[in-house]
Design a protein around this nucleic acid. Structure first.
Lengths: 164, 164
DNA sequence: AAAAGTATCTCACTTTTAGAGATACTTCAA
DNA sequence: TTGAAGTATCTCTAAAAGTGAGATACTTTT
């Protein structure tokens, strides 16, 4: 059971990734651009639009690469930059109708699909599933934070940590 | 609830992806190489070693790019090619001890993490979670198959399908 | 034994990325 | 105020990674 759950988690992630990837390619976007678009959308939905720098951090790419991502998305008309801020260095990123349409084409079918699966579960079961996934996310985040930590500086006796 | 489950699913996928990505970079691999390594490992565990072509299909990259992936992984000593087959065109891919070590460093901590979360759930709850995730995977696969279908050939009256 | 099919690799070209500044703005402290 | 330091984004060049069209070597079919 343990083993099969671990497997299912990874599998679901990969499958979802693959669906997103296929969709993106169908619409002339690469994986990074698609992820960026999703992040920009989520942020704007929360009324906390992303800045270029935040996007860079979330994507895990360099600032240079991120500027290129934004350029590409802006060029094809999915988003626009907004420079009207009290801090005039900042640039926030915003959706255009075209991107809304694209998001609909992606999340619509996917939502229907999820609904169908969910309809086979009781409210209580769904609540368990939800709790489990959120717990996993929290665990991932903690692990991620540990991984991202700058490697311990080369001091006399670094606390014996081995990774091949 | 519905909305938050959809969110949790996507979030878990992204978080997992990010952990994998960070780990890969820490070890001098890019995302594609890491995915390839995982696929090769899984296949070999099942005693059905991947061929180059199968890897290409699973990764969703061109054959040329896949040759490059294999070259990189072989050069640093993670895998080796095997050409001893009845069909002498085929090349199967196999793990080296170095890659086993790397896999251990990745899946070890991740497994521990998952165990910790799972320990907070009853067997029955875990079974529900497992079933749900497998159901989702099946749904994804069906959706993926539909997406991958070659676009309907340009016939007189294509059944009005609009995607921006 | 020729023709067609399959599996992998090679090569030229394009796209994407990293990384190091450059630029423009803000904040802090004297 | 003014200068110094910090921050946010963008620009540039070199390197990495990917595509797509063949080339090569082998197998299967006719």
């Amino acid at each position: 059971m343990r083993r099969s759950i671990v497997n299912a988690i990874r599998g679901m992630g990969l499958d979802g990734q693959r669906v997103a990837d296929t969709f993106a390619h169908r619409h002339g976007l690469n994986n990074t651009d698609m992820r960026a678009l999703t992040l920009i959308m989520e942020a704007e939905m929360r009324h906390e639009p992303l800045t270029a720098g935040q996007l860079s951090a979330k994507l895990g790419t360099s600032t240079g690469a991120t500027t290129a991502v934004i350029d590409r998305l802006e060029r094809v008309g999915h988003i626009h930059r907004n420079r009207d801020h009290s801090d005039r260095r900042k640039v926030t990123l915003h959706f255009e109708p075209l991107a809304m349409q694209l998001a609909g084409a992606y999340f619509g079918p996917l939502g229907a699909l999820t609904d169908e699966v969910m309809s086979r579960y009781s409210t209580q079961e769904l609540s368990t599933v939800h709790r489990f996934m959120e717990d996993m996310r929290a665990a991932y985040s903690a692990h991620q934070a540990a991984l991202s930590e700058p490697e311990p500086p080369a001091s006399p006796a670094p606390p014996e940590q081995h990774a091949p």
